[in-house]
Design a protein around this nucleic acid. Structure first.
Length: 463
DNA sequence: ATGTCC
């Protein structure tokens, strides 16, 4: 057995160093696995020389078309005038985050933008930024943690169930949640997501299957958490018969782990190669929705989003089993994702990077902090916000500032004052690092209405 | 955010 066929073999044949290598490898891995390398390479050479003969071929059609319609790689310039936008909570948002949105609005593919009241600076699009584009998807407009999301499950138990059970509930979180780099469950769970076609049809995604399997039901690091606490249902929840009152609930915040991270990095790399932009906006490189990589990213992004949901579902199932209780209500939403939505009657790609979808009647969760309530919200379908809202309170102090400003004993005091138990968590995640959630909610009254709250009592984060 | 660089 010779060495596996790779991109270098194709370059040796004379393939142009562009996306055609990516297409060729994809098709070879998909349809010609296990065949002799020399045979496959001889065919590839023929396609390179006479692509017009192969346009309808099962293996080589896609490559032949790519070779015949070479994508012209040219530097895009920003337009002088940006497309329309709205900013919610202008006084709470730093200038750099606004600048990032203004630059994004000048992309030739931009249609409309919005900034949420928890916005702050990020790579490419600001976090808390929403951008609608025409027939283009920006991997960094979704962000590194594709499908990062919230999930709240309510148990058929009164909140008073927690009284005197702090140690038992703490133990449940310790045993049934896993965080960070080495945090995997001893007993793995299977899931329908692993039989998805994307894991077989997209060679790059295929290489991530093993990692995805190992990390199912784990939570990651940074601001990710799993919390047990009090759910206060203040209004009727559409589609659910739960009565107003106080219940035990679990709230989780995490994303698509290594799977989404690798997908984001891979397609951002491809986007920056084929969509060069001025240096200050190079992270906003897009992929055309009808192109090979754009279509592949779209499928991979949706897979990562569904995987993130599968992780939350698995975490909640483990906790429900440990409690021996049934979930009677679950509310969830992505806040790092892109959707196909109508904007002024035109189908657009709406990127929400740290923004909660808030279409009319759409339910979502906006977390506060460890020591401040999160909100169960219902969208108002505000068109100026591109039907979005904030994804949290937003940071008041950067991670680096937290390290000089707060000590562990400051945090312990704040937690004690609020009767919150914390497992893990660093000074950079101090509750004092976040803005006042009530101020932020006040700035988006036109975007969402409040149906209930979640008050954390036992919090687990990465150690 | 991330086996925190292929």
């Amino acid at each position: 057995m010779g060495k596996k066929l790779n991109g270098r073999d194709l370059i040796k044949l004379g393939f142009p160093k562009d996306n055609s290598i990516n297409i060729a490898l994809g098709q070879i891995y998909r349809y010609r696995k296990g065949e002799k390398k020399e045979v496959v390479l001889a065919e590839a050479k023929e396609v390179l020389v006479t692509p017009e003969k192969f346009t309808n071929h099962r293996t080589w059609g896609k490559l032949a078309e790519g070779l015949l319609n070479q994508v012209e790689v040219k530097m895009h310039q920003l337009l002088n005038c940006g497309v329309p936008f709205s900013v919610f909570g202008e006084n709470e948002i730093d200038e750099q985050a606004k600048r990032q949105l203004y630059d994004a609005l000048k992309l030739p593919v931009a249609v409309q933008g919005a900034l949420m009241p928890d916005a702050h600076c990020g790579y490419g699009l600001p976090i808390g930024g929403v951008l609608a584009t025409d027939d283009a998807v920006i991997p960094y407009g979704v962000g590194v943690d594709i499908g990062c999301r919230m999930s709240l499950s309510v148990f058929n138990l009164s909140a008073s169930y927690m009284n005197g059970k702090n140690d038992m509930l703490k133990k449940i979180l310790l045993e049934h949640t896993k965080f960070g780099k080495n945090g995997v469950h001893k007993i793995k769970a299977d899931h329908a997501i692993f039989s998805r076609d994307e894991f077989r049809e997209i060679p790059f995604v295929k290489s991530l299957l093993d990692k995805a399997y190992k990390q199912l039901g784990t939570s990651g690091g940074g601001n990710h958490f799993v919390e047990l606490g009090i759910v206060d249902i203040l209004e009727d929840i559409p589609g659910n018969k739960l009565e107003k009152g106080s219940y035990l609930g679990v709230l989780s915040h995490s994303g698509s782990r290594g799977l989404g991270s690798s997908i984001a990095k891979h397609y951002t790399y491809l986007a920056t190669k084929q969509c060069p932009l001025p240096k200050n906006v190079q992270h906003l490189a897009w992929l055309g929705m009808s192109g090979h990589d754009g279509q592949e990213y779209w499928r991979a992004m949706n897979l990562a989003g569904d995987y993130a949901k599968a992780c939350h579902d698995n975490i909640h199932a483990r906790i429900a089993k440990a409690l021996g209780e049934q979930v009677v209500l679950n509310i969830e939403n992505h806040h790092n994702f892109a959707w196909k939505e109508l904007v002024n009657g035109m189908e657009c790609i709406v990127h929400r990077k740290g923004a909660t979808p808030a279409g009319e009647g759409q339910l979502g969760i906006i977390p506060g902090s460890m020591t401040a309530p999160g909100y169960i919200v219902m969208g108002k379908g505000n068109l100026d916000s591109l039907q979005s809202a904030s994804h949290g309170a937003g940071r008041l102090f950067s991670r680096t500032k937290c390290k000089t400003r707060f000590t562990h004993s400051d945090i312990r005091k704040t937690l004690k004052d609020n009767d919150v138990t914390l497992i893990g968590g660093g000074v950079d995640e101090a509750p004092m690092a976040y803005k006042d959630i009530n101020t932020v909610m006040g700035l988006q009254e036109e975007l969402v209405s409040v149906l209930g709250t979640f008050t954390p009592k036992i919090v687990r984060m990465e150690k």
